[in-house]
């Protein structure tokens, strides 16, 4: 799969290299924290572990602070208001699924990743993760064909329904499956508002303003404001499957360019990520 869906092996511009490094750092953090999760750990503790680990490695600003969801909160069961996304005192139990979601900014480069796992065996979540592979391919194909983002969104949703799942990214603000990320200026003081970094919010707002004038949006949603072809830039894509009380997602950066060559017009920034490796191993086995 490498080379076909991502830019691995090719030379990346220094900018993209920076984004790739911070994305790897974030995934490394997720794997380290996931390995440290034990029965009885709370969501707050898991979020704190991610935050501390990244802060130790030089992260000073955030697109959003780390989230952690355990048990049926991975499927956003009963979520009505955005405050419910924040980590709670829910404790991890054996067999429970969990999702770690973090968006650190390192040297001005932002990443936004999602990592799904379970404490011990969870066949249902295993299955969800396997089935996410098709979504990764579908999204890339849709973007390469330059189909309107809203249509791609609907294709993904249809695939989810066919697989027997529900679309849980609909629960995110504006129901987004993806949002744009960009470079952020490094400031000595980088406050967050409701878990989101002000610098990044500013970037998103300015994108929204530009987009509004030019007819596109930095939020990839099911609504009419996403009825436009893919906008060049970096998109953090996060399809989120829900199946009864279990949820699973991945989140990674998709590079969209204005190149005419389909291969060049869109590619995943990195193919050496835990979920992609897992599919490759599954195929080899």
């Amino acid at each position: 799969m490498a080379g076909r869906t991502s830019a691995v092996g090719e030379r990346l511009s220094p900018d993209l290299q920076g984004f790739k490094e911070v994305q790897r750092l974030a995934y490394e953090c997720a794997e380290v924290v996931a390995a440290r999760l034990k029965p009885g750990v709370t969501e707050r503790e898991a979020a704190r572990m991610q935050r501390d680990w990244l802060t130790e490695r030089g992260v000073r600003d955030w697109f959003h602070l780390p989230f952690a969801w355990f048990g049926d909160r991975t499927a956003f069961a009963g979520f009505r208001i955005p405050l419910q996304f924040f980590p709670t005192n829910r404790r991890l139990e054996p067999g429970m699924p969990f999702i770690l979601d973090m968006a650190p900014i390192h040297r001005g480069f932002a990443a936004d990743i999602g990592y799904s796992g379970s404490l011990g065996l969870n066949p249902v979540q295993d299955r969800l993760m396997d089935d996410l592979q098709e979504h990764r391919a579908l999204i890339l194909a849709g973007v390469r064909e330059r189909r309107p983002l809203r249509t791609v969104y609907e294709d993904v949703e249809r695939l989810m329904v066919r697989q027997g799942y529900t679309n849980r990214h609909r629960a995110y603000p504006f129901g987004v499956i993806a949002h744009k990320v960009g470079r952020v200026r490094e400031r000595r003081w980088s406050p967050t508002v409701f878990g989101f970094g002000t610098q990044s919010l500013k970037g998103l707002a300015s994108d929204a303003l530009h987009g509004h004038r030019e007819g596109w949006s930095p939020l990839w949603s099911p609504y009419t404001f996403s009825d436009h072809p893919p906008q060049p830039g970096l998109w953090a894509v996060e399809p989120h499957l829900g199946f009864r009380g279990t949820g699973a997602k991945f989140e990674e950066l998709l590079v969209v360019t204005d190149s005419r060559d389909p291969q060049e017009s869109a590619f995943w920034l990195d193919d050496d990520l835990p979920h992609v490796r897992r599919w490759a191993e599954g195929k080899a086995a």
Binding site: P123, V124, R127, R162, Q163, G164, R244
Partner: peptide, 13 residues
């Protein structure tokens, strides 16, 4: 195909 998929997921549940 859909029916088989439902059965498969039902066993998982």
């Amino acid at each position: 195909e859909g029916a088989a998929r439902t059965a498969e997921m039902a066993r998982l549940l």
